[in-house]
């Protein structure tokens, strides 16, 4: 059943609605609930496929559904509709306004109603797709403050990588942080690239979600095997590669590549002069879990992230 989570009147003949699909057995189910949320960033579309696939699969196999599945495919409908990462008209990153405020402006109000609706789920997935600049292997990012409660779920989610990162004040205003702080376990998935859909990654995450539904007693049907992710809890073992100069980046390897020290990752070239401005090589053995997708770079642009250590290969 499609439900409206929150709606507000817009100035010119339009109603803004954030909607979800609620899937439940006819008897209402056992009270357990998983929520799949995506579309906070309007240019990240990988979650669209996951929402479609999960909803389609469950609706065709309703007899196995024991609990509640809430699917929120578009938290920022204006952004998705206009290829805008943030909230158009406000130039605002929606993932910096949580937990919102029911007495606040339109966006704060929307944020507060979304949090109210999703809170109390046994587990929430917040699916992101990096941005238009970078491609990521399927991974879950966890704030170290919530590592104890989240890592056990993340290990079962069929992702390749779990990255436990340091706490930062700025991240306190994200959707996931607000829910985690309120005791609703929320996993942030980053996978693929902005403005595109990588179906293989969607299929992979779908299997992880169904597996966790099974573990949570929400699903009585078929289970899927999940892979064992690499877990990084040490910020020292993740290396960032930033452009030393401006130019056009040509990648030499794909994300997920296992690298030896000195392997060529890519080149920054200058089409005006026809020269190579820089060659980017791996500073050590490791696993390239992020690579630059968007070719235009300026000094400082992120080109890739490496998890160091030769045992780190999937």
């Amino acid at each position: 059943m499609i439900e409206t989570v929150v709606k507000v009147d817009l100035p010119v003949d339009e109603m803004l609605q954030i909607r979800k699909m609620r899937l439940q057995p006819e008897n209402g189910g056992n009270g357990r609930r998983i929520s799949i949320v995506t579309g906070i960033h309007g240019d990240e579309l990988e979650g669209q496929y996951v929402c479609y696939k999960l909803s389609d699969y469950i609706r065709k196999n309703m007899k196995y559904l024991a609990g509640t599945v809430d699917v929120y495919p578009a938290l920022n409908p204006f952004g998705i509709d206009s290829i805008t990462r943030g909230i158009p008209a406000f130039d605002l990153d929606m993932n910096r306004i949580f937990p919102g405020n029911t007495e606040g402006d339109m966006n704060e109000y929307l944020a507060a109603q979304i949090v109210r609706d999703a809170a109390g789920s046994d587990l929430v997935f917040d699916i992101h797709a990096s941005n238009i600049f970078l491609t990521e292997v399927p991974q879950i990012r966890i704030n170290e403050l919530h590592a104890d409660s989240l890592v056990p779920y993340a290990r079962e989610a069929n992702v390749d990588f779990i990255w436990i990162h340091g706490a930062s004040t700025v991240l306190e205003s994200t959707f996931a942080h607000s829910l985690n702080a309120a005791g609703t376990p929320t996993l942030v998935v980053e996978m693929g690239v902005g403005m595109r859909i990588t179906q293989a990654y969607g299929d992979q995450l779908f299997a992880g979600i169904v597996h966790l539904m099974k573990r949570l007693g929400i699903w009585k049907g078929e289970d899927f095997d999940v892979r064992t992710p690499i877990v990084s809890a040490d910020n020292e073992d993740v290396g960032f590669l930033n452009a030393s100069t401006s130019g056009i980046f040509l990648k030499n390897v794909e994300h997920g590549a296992v690298l030896k020290k000195g392997d060529l990752i890519g080149r920054i070239v200058n089409p005006l002069t026809g020269t190579v401005a820089d060659e980017i090589t791996s500073p050590a053995d490791g696993w390239l879990f992020t690579i630059r997708e968007y070719p235009v770079v300026s000094e400082g642009s992120l080109l890739g992230r490496i998890l160091y250590g030769k045992e780190n290969s999937v």
């Binding site: 507000v8 817009l10 100035p11 010119v12 402006d105 339109m106 109000y109």
Partner: peptide
Amino acid sequence: PRVYQNTA
């Protein structure tokens, strides 16, 4: 010129 609902 225009305003959304509940704006400060």
